[in-house]
Design a protein around this nucleic acid. Structure first.
Lengths: 189, 189
DNA sequence: GTCTATATTTTGATAGAC
DNA sequence: GTCTATCAAAATATAGAC
């Protein structure tokens, strides 16, 4: 296990505060207080508040892009790919609950990296939609609107960070399975 | 049709800006610019920035509470109640897209009204869960975890505001029906 | 690596003229 | 109902001592 650097600690603590109040409402003094130092001292490790947000969001977005690439490259059915996507979101979200809040709610406060983020996001959604369309064509899934299907599933997966910390008895594989049941197979008998 | 007061106009324009950047990132000068007046003039109509947020969030929260009360009082099946809940969210969200963003993302910036909001929110979620539990008992829906089911469905419904404005050809009843298919009946064949 | 001190800008809000 | 002028507080960030 690599030792956490001071900079990484700052980013981690910042993400926690960003989740509670949002990027704009968290001040460098808030962050410093939580770190037990003075605000000026933060700048020995980071360049700006902006940079902290960039680090949180871009690294997560790239993680999702990488995961989607692996899933798409596999030669498996649409339903199996959807199951893998669910597992991808459960895994990344549970490993970085705080960061997921920034990814979801504060991406619009990116500046230099905003275009890059939006490129990754659009590509991810297009890949997701392609998988659904393949599934419709191959008669694996129902012929409903792929847009609405993607919106519904992806919204739930993107919001896992809100809900994961509330469960004490969290078994990640069990959560993935339950989500698979609910999102893919539906809830009615 | 009642004429919109200046105060209502300010709240409406503020909600639009809050959706784009979040409550904390929107300044009274931003709001004044969008209204075509100076920031100081806003205070002739509203007491504070806080008050604007209160108005947006509390009125929406009460609308949901009222709608849930009507649904619960009906003598209908669990599945029919779930369908009514979907329609409730589609209706309120489409009528107040901007306000829904504040309700979802900026409720933690409430001050005086925070406790009241959280009370309404918890009651709403408990009502929702009760409906699901009844459905499980009466064998109408599958015996999966009601918590995860509620989280999944409610997250999608709460996020409709993100997605509704993107659809040009929006038919509300059709959207409700598609969501019913996807959320309740599932997507696999 | 942290501190004190401080520069600069921006914030929500008020007073009073018109 | 809107304006100009202004306040007091709070924001990000830098300089330089230790």
């Amino acid at each position: 296990m690599k030792q956490e650097t001071r900079k990484e600690e700052i980013v981690r603590v910042a993400a926690k505060l960003f989740k509670e109040k949002g990027y704009s409402a968290v001040t460098m003094r808030d962050l410093a207080r939580e770190m037990g130092i003075k605000a000026a001292s933060l700048y020995n490790h980071i360049n700006s508040k902006q940079d902290i947000l960039d680090g949180i969001i871009i690294s997560l977005a790239e993680e999702f892009t990488k995961g989607m690439g692996l899933i798409r490259s596999r030669d498996s059915s649409c339903i199996e790919k959807l199951k893998k996507i669910i597992e991808l979101h459960v895994k990344i979200s549970s490993q970085n609950i705080y960061g997921m809040a920034s990814l979801n709610n504060d991406w619009m406060h990116l500046e230099v990296q905003l275009d890059y983020y939006q490129k990754l996001r659009i590509a991810y959604e297009n890949d997701f939609k392609s998988i659904l369309k393949e599934g419709i064509e191959s008669n694996e899934i129902v012929d409903a609107k792929p847009d609405v299907m993607m919106f519904s599933i992806l919204t739930t997966l993107r919001s896992l960070y809100i809900w994961i910390p509330k469960k004490e008895d969290l078994n990640l594989q069990e959560l993935s399975n339950t989500l698979y049941q609910i999102l893919i197979k539906g809830i009615n008998k």
